[in-house]
Design a protein around this nucleic acid. Structure first.
Lengths: 124, 124
DNA sequence: ACCATTGGTTTCCTTTTGGAAACTAATTTC
DNA sequence: GAAATTAGTTTCCAAAAGGAAACCAATGGT
């Protein structure tokens, strides 16, 4: 008789797993957190502003990631009919609901660094 | 005069960005959340148990991801001198500190699905 | 005339990630 | 004697992710 999965074999776990997959899919890639973090702090920013703020990102990635975020209603894109065109990006109200996640992740990371330093003082 | 970054150009923001990079680096990849989630619920599990619990994962990935997690002190690996060998994996106390993050991410994902359903009823 | 600026797109290339299958070696079970 | 189980490692391959540079059109500045 073969053994089978038991722990993950119920609806609650499956739902949670799918939920985690959804969230992480939306926040996937090297730049999403940087873009969201910058927009949460910065109100309205233009494409070139973001390019300057986010160190290391290129136009291709910025453009692509902004499209992803816009599709998921986390970022709003507004085009102004100036010449040359002006485009403003801002975080949506829905996008702001990601703040607690970003906070938790940032705080855990800060704690992690601190623990590494303490450990190296004692253990080496 | 060239424009320069202003928002992300202070120590607090840089620290937070690094912290986020650290956390997400540790939790990177397709399987980390699944492994951690399973171990948080499951107390002690053996390699083959995890292989059965986590749907779709293969031996290579499971082995590699467990090594990553062990290196970061999130998972403890214990070898028993039986024949053939028995190996038990369990979450560490430190690993449990990731629970709030996992909870936030799971809950946001559940909300996201609910909003999608509501939206499709009204808009489409 | 020429360069810079706006907000991108496209192409090409490299790196990273992940999966399938074969293999290890010792032991128990049929 | 053959097969299954334990816990993995290794190799080979395909797909995805990401970066650099060139290019677009329209306009403003020197």
């Amino acid at each position: 008789m073969k053994k089978k999965a038991v722990l993950n074999n119920n609806v609650v776990c499956q739902t949670r797993m799918t939920a985690i997959k959804d969230t992480m899919g939306i926040l996937s890639g090297k730049w999403k957190f940087h873009i969201l973090g910058t927009l949460i702090r910065g109100e309205k920013l233009r494409f070139m502003d973001l390019l300057r703020e986010i160190d290391g990102i290129g136009t291709k990635m910025l453009s692509k990631e902004l499209q992803d975020l816009e599709m998921n209603h986390l970022v709003k894109r507004t085009v102004f009919n100036t010449k040359p065109v002006t485009v403003e990006y801002e975080i949506t109200e829905y996008g702001k609901t990601l703040s607690p996640i970003i906070e938790e992740i940032a705080n855990w990371g800060i704690d992690y660094r601190n623990k590494l330093h303490k450990r190296s003082e004692i253990a080496v």
